[in-house]
């Protein structure tokens, strides 16, 4: 690990100022320290934000929840209100990582974790995300775990989070604090950038901009589930995952909020797919049409070609589960 200056931030404003001057925030550190050991990330200064007052889950005036950026994955997954009103989020968190990591990993850090693309981790190989302009080794390499949607010729990395997939389906928004003291709210769609020709730029966050919270809208009607398909039954990243919230009235789908993990450089959501399902009577034929639309632009790179039919089957299965009662 390269040497760095270590500073413990006293308050959020100071943290943002310190980071704007070239520092990197550290919270749980479970991904950052791993990358620092490998010298994939080499921050010159770490701003430790663990003592900031951002570890509370508060109810908002409109029935939602405001989740502080330092709430651990364990505390969020186990919160009684989340289990009751936003079960897809509990399920996604519990499907991720291990007990030890969930105790350390935070809400803000989980959103900003880096891809697990093998070439991003391997400093001996070209990687446009790690070293812009050097090329993408993954396109013609071991790309079994990588993306089939939203990629570019410069990068096919996936975003590895389960939590963010559930938050995308729930329409969560991120609250941030900038160096100048101003704040803003971003949808997850707005937070993350697609790789394009700058895969090293993963979010719209500016230097020093600190995620302070994630706001969940009030619970909605409908059944919720998180389905994660992976190479082993526990403690593995998703090959494909689906967060689904589906409601049915009078035999017709009135809500189909769907987000996907393992397929793209960001938690993926496609409004056209949801529009296609809404107002319709659930059937396997309908679900396959939704999958056709979701995967119309999907592109495999050899070893990850299997993700395209896997995503189809997973979506059809999840929609079947969430509409089971209406189909009987």
């Amino acid at each position: 690990m390269r040497p760095f200056d270590y500073t413990r931030a006293e308050d959020t404003e100071a943290a943002a100022r310190q980071a704007a001057g070239g520092g990197t925030f550290i919270a749980g550190g479970t991904n950052l320290l791993d990358l620092m050991k490998l010298e994939v990330m080499t921050p010159e200064a770490l701003i430790d934000i663990n003592r900031l007052d951002l570890a509370e889950i508060e109810e908002t005036d409109d029935g939602g929840l405001r989740v502080g950026a330092l709430v651990t994955n364990s505390d969020l997954a186990n919160d009684a209100r989340v289990r009751e009103g936003w079960p897809v989020l509990s399920r996604a968190l519990l499907a991720g990582a291990s007990g030890q990591l969930r105790n350390k990993a935070t809400t803000g850090g989980n959103l900003l974790q880096r891809t697990r693309c093998l070439y991003f981790y391997d400093r001996a190989m070209p990687c446009n995300k790690r070293e812009p302009g050097t090329g993408c080794s993954a396109k013609d390499g071991f790309n079994r775990i990588l993306a089939v949607l939203g990629t570019s010729e410069h990068c096919i990395a996936t975003h590895p989070s389960d939590m963010a997939v559930a938050m995308r389906a729930l329409g969560a928004e991120v609250e941030t604090l900038k160096e100048d003291g101003s704040t803003r709210r971003l949808t997850l769609d707005d937070l993350y950038l697609l790789p394009g020709d700058r895969p090293d730029q993963e979010t719209v966050l500016e230097a020093g901009e600190l995620i302070t919270a994630v706001v969940l809208p009030a619970p909605v009607e409908g059944k919720q589930t998180y389905r994660k398909v992976r190479d082993r039954a526990s403690y593995a990243f998703a090959l494909v995952s689906v967060a689904g919230i589906v409601d049915i009235e009078d035999g017709r789908i009135t809500r189909a909020d769907l987000a996907f993990g393992g397929l793209a450089p960001k938690p993926w959501r496609n409004a056209e797919v949801e529009d296609l399902l809404t107002g319709e009577t659930p059937s396997e034929d309908l679900f396959n049409k939704a999958a056709d639309l979701l995967l119309a632009e999907a592109k495999g790179y050899g070893a990850n070609d299997f993700k395209i039919p896997l995503a189809r089957r997973t979506l059809v299965s999840v929609l079947g589960e969430l509409t089971e009662e209406a189909q009987q």
Binding site: Y6, I26, T30, D34, D48, G99, Q100, N103, K104
Partner: peptide, 11 residues
């Protein structure tokens, strides 16, 4: 429980 290898003592 946490992984002691993935955290800094000073934290």
């Amino acid at each position: 429980r946490i992984n002691a290898c993935l955290t800094l003592a000073c934290m």
